[in-house]
Design a protein around this nucleic acid. Structure first.
Lengths: 208, 208
DNA sequence: ACGAATATTGTACCAAAGGCCAATGGACCG
DNA sequence: CGGTCCATTGGCCTTTGGTACAATATTCGT
């Protein structure tokens, strides 16, 4: 496992003199900083598994900050976005925050406020990344189940007895037992209660 | 069960001529409207189990709209808040939306925009009320458990066998069975898997 | 076509869970 | 003080679940 920096601030701003100055301040505060001159630049150069947060201007050549936010939202690792702009208005602010932005700051910004927002954004990213990792692991285990086993699982979490599941699936109780054992094994669940929690989190619905 | 109107808009604004005009428009659009001249007025007159949403101005004599929002947030039924103001700025907008406001509109507002926001707020309130009802029902059932039963429950959802639970609680397996039966009965759970889901939702932690 | 994975079933045994009936001792309340 | 609720235990019997060992049919990819 390669350790990758997670306290990264991705600055997306066409005003390079401002970007560089902000980058210096943030680096001095202990963050790693990456600079991008446009949303397109960021979307092209960003790593698939990138971590950290985005600090974006609103108005830029090419896609706007809000458009960048929209594009990011559909990514599999939507980094938290902080807007920092000198040209903001209330409607933009509303759109940004309703779109899940971590914060919406105006230039000039106090370093303390910026650091504050960045810390919150990084914390959120950490949470989200942890959740993604956990869910991915569970989903992977879940996908090791065969179609039949999945079907059995959905009956099991509905609380049915092996015998009844056998009837519904036109199989004997013995067969269901075999599937059930495979399910518990593949999912690594130690008990039915744990199965219930896992499937709840994965959104697996009880059958019928 | 008494049926109470749920499509209510609680308008909190000191500008009464504006309030009345807005109320007329909203009533014409099919909503029930209640008027309040200040945040204090609203907090005093509102019903404990009130439903609907709040449409508040930002600047008012007495507590501001943002202070009203803060006060509401700690209530057991925090109604969704829509801000509608002529004196807004970006910082206020950020505070309001980060505080969970449904929307932040500026005067003058198009009726269509207002109706849109109100509909979303009412939908959210409906969701929240349904969730509260469901959770309250579950919590009530959960609280029927005796201290001992709760203890047993936390071992059960940890996946332990009756025998082992008995050992840990210095009781016989037979006793644990009795508790277990009482638990399933009181909680209305049909299966261990369902127990797992319920306790997950209630935040009951497995023991040890 | 051959091997691997999958789905299925069987026999048999043991452990665990649940239901039924009954009883005891302690704590709290009116 | 008597009644109620709670925690506890007992025996007995049935059902259910889990596991070990083993075997057959099907599908699918190389």
């Amino acid at each position: 496992m390669i350790s990758v920096a997670t306290r990264i601030v991705h600055i997306v701003d066409d005003d390079e003199s401002f970007s560089r100055a902000t980058a210096r301040s943030l680096k001095a505060s202990g963050y790693t900083v990456e600079l991008y001159v446009s949303a397109t630049d960021f979307l092209a150069r960003r790593q698939h598994e990138a971590r950290g947060c985005v600090l974006a201007d609103l108005q830029m050549p090419g896609p706007s900050g809000l458009e960048l936010q929209t594009a990011l939202a559909t990514a599999d690792n939507p980094l938290p976005v902080i807007f920092l702009t000198g040209t903001g208005d209330i409607p933009s602010t509303v759109i940004a925050l309703k779109g899940g932005a971590e914060d919406f700051l105006t230039k000039p910004v106090l370093l303390a406020d910026l650091v504050n927002a960045v810390d919150r954004a990084l914390a959120r990213d950490e949470q989200a990344a942890a959740r993604r990792t956990r869910e991915a692991a569970m989903r992977e285990r879940f996908q090791r189940l065969t179609a039949r086993e999945t079907e059995v699982l959905r009956h099991v979490i509905a609380g049915r007895l092996n015998k009844e599941i056998g009837d519904r699936l036109s199989a004997t109780e013995r067969t269901i037992k075999a599937h059930r054992a495979a399910i518990m094994d593949k999912l690594g669940a130690g008990s039915p209660a744990e199965l219930g929690r896992m499937t709840e989190e994965l959104g697996v619905q009880p059958l019928h």
